[in-house]
């Protein structure tokens, strides 16, 4: 596989009150690939993602991005939130441009960039709407566009599809693969859905429950150049799902 762009070494995290969320986690995330953190609730997968994002401090170990040790958020990483985290008082356009606004990019320039990504995620015509006027799926498209707009190499996604309905979710997964196909983005994706992980990922990290440790790493040999329906009927895809379930069932 390609060179690791994000490395996690010996990460440990114990929350106030003594709950040990992560212990001795060593992982490497290859550049330009989609990796999934998968495991049952409470396995610390979101904690690990937020540690990589620099949003939560860790107690032990280190996070390296492009070889450099990081201690907080950085412009090479962008986050997509489970609950969308959109500014309710701002239009879609301003929400998508918000990352650039924080960086001090001039209004005209940032809105030009934002409009391009709004178009790409399929929300053209909704620029002036407010989040309250959008469905869950559309809100998450805004969240994705916002992450793409800052042009980070690494996109961190925390269960981005967990609060949208099944049809929207499938369509969104397909669009996500399409969006990533031509870009050299590294994606780290948290989910509790085995199918989602097998469908999207180049590398799947299975975590054990409390404290979270790496149980197994699965690299599905699914040919992603094929159509979504073909992928879902692919022998390797189905085997991967069964294989992962075989490992995870012991933790449930």
């Amino acid at each position: 596989m390609s060179e690791a762009i994000v490395e996690v070494k010996g990460i440990g995290k114990t929350y106030e009150g003594g709950v040990e969320a992560l212990r001795e986690v060593d992982l490497a995330f290859p550049a330009g690939k989609l990796s999934t953190l998968l495991g049952p609730s409470g396995c610390g997968k979101t904690t690990l993602l937020k540690i990589i994002a620099g949003l939560i401090p860790h107690d032990a170990g280190e996070v390296r991005v492009k070889g450099r040790k990081v201690h907080g958020p950085g412009p090479e990483r962008a986050f997509v939130f489970q609950d969308f985290a959109l500014l309710p008082w701002a239009s879609v356009l301003r929400n998508v441009a918000f990352g650039l606004e924080l960086r001090g990019v001039a209004r005209e320039e940032r809105e030009r960039v934002a409009r391009r990504y709004i178009d790409e995620v399929g929300l053209k015509g909704f620029e002036e709407r407010h989040p309250s006027e959008l469905s869950g799926g559309m809100k998450q498209r805004v969240g994705l566009a916002r992450a793409l707009t800052v042009d980070a190499d690494i996109i961190l996604m925390d269960e981005p599809f967990s609060s949208v309905d099944e049809q929207t979710r499938r369509k969104f997964q397909e669009d996500l693969l399409e969006l990533l196909r031509h870009r050299q983005k590294t994606v780290i994706f948290v989910t509790h859905s085995i199918e989602e992980a097998a469908y999207l990922s180049d590398q799947i990290v299975l975590l054990t429950p409390r404290p979270g440790t790496v149980s197994r790493i699965v690299r599905p040999a699914v040919d992603r150049s094929r159509s979504p329906d073909e992928i879902r009927r692919d022998r390797n895809y189905l085997d991967t799902v069964d294989d992962i379930w075989g490992t995870l069932r012991q933790y449930v």
Partner: peptide, 25 residues
Amino acid sequence: DRSLVEMARSFGARPAQLYGKVLIL
């Protein structure tokens, strides 16, 4: 909203921006 605060931090908001653009609004 705590996740709005996290969002602003993840996109590199400075403290003044965090207050002016997120918390107070």
